[in-house]
Simulated assay, not measured.
Amino acid sequence: MIESIRASAAALQAHLPQQPAVGIVLGSGLGELAEQLEQPVAVPYGEVPGFAQSTAPGHAGRFVAGRLAGKPVLCMQGRLHFYEGHPMQAIAFPIRVMKELGVRTLILTNAAGGVNTSFSVGDLMVIEDHINFMGQNPLTGPNDEAVGPRFCDMTFAYTPALRQLAFQVAARQGVTLQKGVYLGYMGPSYETPAEIRAFRALGADAVGMSTVPEVIAASHCGLDVLAVSLITNMAAGIEKKKLSGEEVIEIANRRAQVLQGLISGVIAAL
């Protein structure tokens, strides 16, 4: 495994202006942050050996490197999803490559459905923990000790110091942050109202179709993690209306600047 990671990292490194310190994964409708980078360099996933191509709506499917808030960063402008047919190992692979490139802090964003009925559409939620309801784990199969341990502790997968920093930055910016548990759902169908009621009983505050495999991979290879969900809709059955991908993208576009400001502020404070 480590040989494949190093080969992909070397190929990507040839395009990068400098070693990135922060990796950012941009979710549905949130790719605009990559356009804010200074001196950007874009590399489509298809040009990096070992990478799969993202097919999800609102995902450009490329790396963008540059500087944000004075720090060298590497953005994934769009991610890979399990529902696209990618194996879990393919979803974990870009996270491991970013670690090999020198990234030490990983910031993940996603569009999510609100399960907590006290949330509102447009809220930002700092993820404190997750529930893996995707049915698989990216660490299944042979383990390479050069990448991470066979049994990966998840107690502090969402780095407490980064969560605290996010709230400090949000307070300075006048941004209200929610906090809660994210439940990763396989998709691509949205959840049923009955499933949402069950997820709420399990302690979930938001639900989405990404992020969990990336966090597991990041914890496995020793990255610090901050993850923020943008609540783009209330989950099935709460508002008694049908859900649509178009609504998710619309709300994400509308609230993207607030999330971008938060992420930029956190990076500036690192």
Rank of each mutant, 00 (worst) to 15 (best):
residue 214 E to S: 10
residue 180 G to A: 08
residue 215 V to K: 04
residue 193 P to L: 07
residue 209 M to P: 12
residue 165 L to R: 15
residue 219 S to D: 04
residue 211 T to E: 02
residue 176 T to R: 15
residue 227 A to R: 10
residue 171 A to N: 04
residue 169 V to N: 02
residue 212 V to L: 09
residue 168 Q to F: 00
residue 173 Q to T: 07
residue 213 P to M: 05
residue 170 A to Q: 10
residue 210 S to A: 00
residue 225 V to R: 12
residue 216 I to V: 15
residue 177 L to W: 01
residue 183 L to Y: 01
residue 179 K to E: 14
residue 182 Y to A: 10
residue 176 T to P: 00
residue 189 S to M: 08
residue 215 V to Q: 08
residue 226 L to E: 00
residue 212 V to N: 05
residue 177 L to D: 02
residue 213 P to L: 07
residue 226 L to W: 00
residue 204 A to G: 13
residue 169 V to S: 08
residue 194 A to M: 14
residue 228 V to K: 03
residue 166 A to C: 07
residue 170 A to L: 11
residue 226 L to A: 01
residue 173 Q to Y: 12
residue 219 S to M: 13
residue 184 G to V: 14
residue 187 G to N: 12
residue 204 A to R: 08
residue 228 V to F: 00
residue 168 Q to P: 00
residue 200 R to D: 01
residue 208 G to W: 06
residue 169 V to Q: 06
residue 189 S to R: 13
residue 168 Q to H: 10
residue 224 D to P: 06
residue 193 P to S: 12
residue 167 F to S: 04
residue 207 V to W: 01
residue 192 T to D: 12
residue 227 A to Y: 12
residue 189 S to L: 09
residue 195 E to D: 11
residue 166 A to F: 02
residue 206 A to H: 09
residue 224 D to E: 15
residue 207 V to D: 04
residue 214 E to Y: 12
residue 191 E to N: 02
residue 198 A to C: 09
residue 200 R to T: 04
residue 221 C to D: 14
residue 179 K to A: 15
residue 166 A to M: 07
residue 215 V to M: 11
residue 174 G to A: 06
residue 204 A to T: 06
residue 230 L to Y: 02
residue 166 A to Y: 05
residue 208 G to K: 07
residue 182 Y to L: 11
residue 209 M to V: 02
residue 181 V to D: 09
residue 204 A to D: 09
residue 186 M to Y: 15
residue 217 A to D: 11
residue 196 I to Y: 05
residue 212 V to A: 02
residue 175 V to F: 10
residue 165 L to F: 01
residue 224 D to F: 05
residue 220 H to M: 06
residue 196 I to T: 01
residue 179 K to S: 14
residue 192 T to G: 06
residue 175 V to K: 07
residue 217 A to C: 13
residue 195 E to Q: 06
residue 165 L to H: 11
residue 214 E to V: 14
residue 229 S to D: 05
residue 230 L to V: 02
residue 172 R to Y: 04
residue 190 Y to E: 09
residue 179 K to C: 11
residue 171 A to L: 14
residue 193 P to D: 11
residue 175 V to R: 07
residue 171 A to E: 15
residue 213 P to H: 11
residue 174 G to I: 05
residue 203 G to W: 00
residue 217 A to Q: 04
residue 175 V to H: 04
residue 187 G to D: 12
residue 211 T to I: 13
residue 169 V to M: 03
residue 191 E to K: 05
residue 203 G to N: 07
residue 219 S to T: 13
residue 199 F to A: 14
residue 209 M to D: 12
residue 185 Y to K: 03
residue 217 A to H: 08
residue 186 M to V: 15
residue 184 G to M: 12
residue 230 L to I: 02
residue 184 G to H: 10
residue 185 Y to D: 09
residue 218 A to S: 13
